[in-house]
Design a protein around this nucleic acid. Structure first.
Lengths: 185, 185
DNA sequence: CTTTACATGTAACTCGTTACATGATTAA
DNA sequence: TTAATCATGTAACGAGTTACATGTAAAG
């Protein structure tokens, strides 16, 4: 949808190779927008063909050569314009919700376990978010404007995560009560 | 990912045509899992080929003929098993977050507007959820188990929506303060 | 007379995932 | 010697979107 623009965004401050991008993505934008290295390499090539990125081969010692990509002026302009265009939300699709539509006395135990695992995974993710927040965004109001935007994205992640935990607790509660009602064990 | 299973789930209680499914989807599961009619028709055909659905042509008066699909025994079994299999989350991808990474003095006004629109849209969606909740899930504890699962999915929608509103307010606040700081107007 | 609801599809394309492929260096 | 890190790719497939196509009946 806008992976290309996400990639360009990641290149605003530093030039990067596909490999570096894939990692940087994992640590920042990728928290909200995952992309595999295959996708990134393909997208980088397309963007270079369009003239929005330039590529420079860089020889390295003890490591394979890499290809550094950087935003061109045209790329910066395209990105700047894009912000004004209509945006889309690809709503998340979660098997778990479909499974809940199939809740039964037989599978209730399994679903409790599954929700418990989700809870645990989200706890860990929140812990990561919190470390980032404390490390880089302790005082958002003194940051440059662009960084404040990034902070807001992080806040979205944190709030969404906390909401998710709250839902898990509510769901686990309800399911525990129901399972007890209809036959403990 | 699991559109096929979402479709089978929608057919647990009533047989439906592709057209009816597309509508029912919009009103229930589709609130969390959107699917276009093209996708649904294709998926129905695949499922019928697998033997998980049966098809019956039904002549109608004053309306075009339709094809009714119903879960077969094999379909019910496959669905029951699927609940125990590993589930996936397709995390939502939202252009707005990428745009926020590009926040600048120039586009801050636009982003405030865009967030305001999101807020408004989410308010309306929450209003819809609330109507459904009051209409069908006022006392979840007395519902049959399966309906309680559906209720939990609805709760997820409600909690996520409320969290989203809270984020919008926070973001609008921060952006308003920043815009005032750097040049009112 | 025009729009909306009913009803089902095909074709082309983009986006994203999975599997496969290669090859050097460094640390355990 | 085995695994991990660095580095870049191709090919096949599946999921999802957009555009196109057709036709009847009821309601305004």
């Amino acid at each position: 949808m806008a992976l290309s623009h996400a990639i360009m965004t990641a290149l605003i401050e530093d030039d990067m190779s596909g490999y570096e991008l894939a990692k940087a993505f994992d640590a920042s934008l990728g928290l909200f927008w995952h992309a595999s290295h295959q996708q990134i390499y393909q997208e980088l090539r397309k963007l270079a063909d369009k003239g929005w990125l330039n590529r420079r081969e860089v020889a390295q010692r003890g490591k394979p050569d890499k290809i550094l990509y950087g935003l061109t002026l045209a790329g910066r302009e395209a990105l700047g314009e894009w912000v004004y265009r209509e945006s889309r939300v690809q709503e998340s699709k979660d098997d778990l919700l479909v499974k809940l539509y199939n809740l039964s006395a037989e599978n209730i135990g399994h679903l409790r376990v599954e929700i418990g695992e989700r809870r645990e995974a989200m706890m860990q993710r929140l812990y990561l978010y919190e470390r980032i927040r404390r490390g880089h965004y302790a005082r958002p109001e003194v940051l440059p404007l662009r960084r404040q935007g990034v902070f807001l994205a992080l806040r979205m992640g944190i709030l969404a995560g906390e909401q998710y935990l709250a839902w898990c607790d509510e769901a686990l509660d309800l399911l525990a009560r129901e399972q007890e009602k209809r036959g403990p064990r």
